[in-house]
Design a protein around this nucleic acid. Structure first.
Length: 681
DNA sequence: AGCCCGTCGGTTTTT
DNA sequence: CCGACGGGCT
């Protein structure tokens, strides 16, 4: 039996020691990282390239502050996802040897929500307000659009096609996030709707009013209302910013103007702010992020110190050469070029044209199994894609070969109709006047459509006891089903049961309705609901559950894996956007086609094209050791007709010596991998 | 008038 | 595969 020694690294042990000297921090870091850690006073801008130890630096800085005696509750750490915050805090805790869990933080939106829950009434916000996620917000828009009469065709104003609710939402949201008037937002993304500007403005206004009168707050409101609060209420601002001595912001290139404003306000008293970001990795401009925030930071904080991290510790030299060549194609140039001194050489990154999507999937699955034979674990490998649906074929192949995987990106559980239905009952227990949820659950009843649902829910809003749906004077068509609904709510509200009991009760009531509503695929949906119930058990209050669902909903397929966990940590499938900040030993990028990445919706403007290039850059820089870029040559069209796909334009002009090409050859029924260096022709 | 259901068209990325 | 739309039904 082979025996190896295993060396425990010192930093996982040092946590236990009460080593008062802070030198251990210096020892683990390079000069720039250490400078970023110890420069705690004043404003600091850290520009950190991919894989240069950005997360490590932030983690060490948190631990360093804590060990220097700074109370955790005076530190605010803002990150892009809650997962990122949790991971950093865990690592900082073991580093500093003292719990860091008291640190304030999470996402901008979550922190803003906390502020508003506490001080919202100061700006006349109802104290029981509900947070709308995107699909809720779209439903509200649909509601006000209908109320204004825009749904009818032949309406004088709607001779032309009227934008659908998701388009309306994205226009309204873009205007807020970019801090521009509605017409500018329309012109930017949907110039063909410019002639409807006045109507869209009316809807935007009605949407705003509706939210206010019904105590609803959408994602953008969380940020803008926080800014409003801190701007207008001087005493609140002084109290809050006085209590925050140190602020750290991760992924600053993906913040928008409102978020930048928020930072400025929160740091007013102490002025100790460090923002960390990489302009080359900005991939959220589509949602209003502005990477120029990075360059504007020194203007906002004139005495700010600028620190650059340029030494990459993640990838091999060969991968780095390729990714440097990729990002060099950007129209807007980036000043830095990453280098490595520790991971010289390595395997060539590979570009793999596959005959078709099936072949692509087979290659990925087979190569993953081979790498696992060589000792890589499944969770150390990832398959990345531009669009969530690009992995459907691969998912079939992985299931066929029994390779467990978890998928990030794509549909969230709160976007699935059946989960939304289910949650609507819970929302009503939390807020009985939630018209939106009434609407939703009433429409599930046979004979009740949009019109009746709206009438009934408007009536409920003013009723003394909303749960006792009054059945007098309603049409016998749906009398019985209304009675049953009232019965459900009576049971839910009169007995003192736990959340789990309530949920089960709702489940029993809802299941038959669901079967009727979504007859085609109800078994799948039923399974989802059962999985959802197992997650729900972890929550003690409806409010906690609803907050999590609104601000950090898990992906539908991730929920499935969570519920049916196998003993082996699964392979990761992820959209590039959801892969931000993560890294793997082996990375496969699939469907690297022109029209996919860059997206065909982005090719008309140089700016959007650059963002797609940065997206590709983010994808490729996730790889530590192995990198495969794949695309199918023949693509299946929408119907049955196939067409020839072109590889991404970003791959066309890369230096020949920066990658190898892999040609797939069939051996019997299974394809074999025949590596050929592209330079030996 | 309002509901139901079949058909067709268009399909990015997410706090 | 979901959502908008139109026609027929209650």
């Amino acid at each position: 039996m082979p025996v190896r020694t295993f060396v425990l690294s010192s930093d996982s042990l040092s946590g236990a020691s009460s080593d008062l000297s802070l030198e251990k921090y210096e020892k683990d870091l390079n000069a720039s990282q250490w400078e970023a850690v110890r420069t705690t006073e004043g404003a600091v801008l850290t520009i950190a390239g991919a894989g240069t130890g950005k997360t490590k630096t932030l983690t060490y800085r948190v631990a360093y502050l804590i060990e220097s005696g700074i109370p955790a509750s005076t530190i605010l750490l803002l990150t892009f996802t809650r997962r990122a915050a949790e991971e950093m805090l865990n690592r900082a805790t073991s580093l500093a040897g003292v719990p860091c869990s008291q640190i304030l933080g999470g996402t901008f939106h979550a922190y803003a929500l906390k502020l508003l829950r506490q001080y919202g009434t100061d700006i006349k916000l109802a104290d029981n307000f509900t947070v709308l996620d995107q699909s809720d917000a779209e439903d509200v828009i649909e509601l006000v659009r209908t109320a204004l009469g825009y749904h009818k065709k032949g309406n004088a104003v709607t001779e032309k096609r009227f934008p659908k609710k998701s388009t309306l939402y994205s226009i309204i949201s873009a205007a807020v996030n970019r801090n521009v008037p509605i017409e500018t937002a329309i012109e930017h993304t949907y110039p063909h709707f410019l002639s409807l500007t006045d109507d869209i403005k009316k809807i935007a206004q009605a949407y705003q009013n509706y939210k206010r009168t019904n105590a609803l707050v959408d994602y953008d409101d969380l940020l803008t209302l926080s800014v409003e609060l801190l701007t207008e209420k001087t005493d609140v601002r002084t109290r809050i910013s006085g209590a925050i001595r140190y602020i750290m912001v991760d992924e600053y290139q993906d913040t928008n103007l409102v978020q930048a404003q928020l930072i400025k306000l929160l740091s007013e008293v102490h002025g100790n702010v460090m923002v960390v970001g990489d302009d080359a990795q900005s991939i959220y401009a589509f949602r209003g992020a502005n990477y120029r925030n990075i360059f504007d930071f020194p203007k906002q904080f004139p005495n700010c110190r600028i620190i650059k991290l340029e030494e990459n510790y993640r990838s091999t030299e060969r991968i780095l050469d390729l990714t440097n060549a990729v990002i060099a194609q950007a129209k807007e140039k980036f000043a830095k070029r990453l280098y490595t001194t520790t991971k010289l050489g390595g395997e060539y990154p590979a570009i793999v044209p596959a005959q078709d999507e099936r072949m692509q999937s087979k290659f990925v699955a087979q190569r993953i199994l081979e790498l696992r034979e060589e000792g890589l674990e499944l969770h150390q490998m990832a398959v990345l894609m531009r669009n969530s649906r690009d992995s459907f074929d691969l998912e079939l192949e992985l299931r066929k070969r029994n390779i467990p995987f978890v998928k990030y990106g794509g549909q969230k559980i709160t976007e699935a109709a059946h989960i939304k239905d289910f949650v609507a009952y819970l929302k009503l227990l939390h807020n009985p006047k939630d018209v939106l949820s009434w609407n939703r659950i009433l429409k599930l009843l046979r004979g009740i459509g949009p019109k009746t649902a709206q009438e009934v829910s408007e009536w409920i809003k003013t009723a003394p006891n909303p749960y006792r749906v009054d059945t007098s004077g309603v049409s016998p068509k749906y009398l019985e089903s209304l009675r049953k609904l009232a019965e459900l709510f009576t049971a839910l509200t009169t007995s003192n049961t736990t959340l789990t009991d309530k949920a089960e009760r709702i489940y029993d009531y809802y299941l038959p309705l669901m079967r009727e509503q979504y007859f085609d695929d109800y078994p799948k949906r039923q399974k989802d609901l059962e999985n959802f119930l197992t997650i729900l058990v972890n929550y003690s209050s409806i409010e906690a559950l609803l907050t999590d669902l609104a601000l950090d909903p898990i992906d539908l397929s991730a929920m499935e894996t969570k519920a049916t966990q196998k003993d082996e940590s699964p392979l990761v499938l992820s959209t590039i956007h959801s892969a931000k900040g993560l890294e793997w030993e082996a990375v496969f990028l699939i469907n690297a086609l022109d029209g996919i990445i860059p997206s065909r919706y982005a090719v008309s403007s140089a700016e959007e094209l650059d963002e797609e290039l940065r997206l590709l850059y983010v994808a490729l820089t996730r790889a530590k050791k192995y990198l495969y870029i794949l695309y199918p040559i023949v693509c299946a069209g929408l119907g049955q007709e196939a067409y020839f796909g072109n590889p991404s334009r970003f791959l066309m002009d890369l230096p020949e010596e920066s990658y190898e090409k892999i040609v797939l050859v069939k051996a019997g029924s299974a394809p074999r991998i025949a590596p050929t260096k592209n330079q030996n022709e």
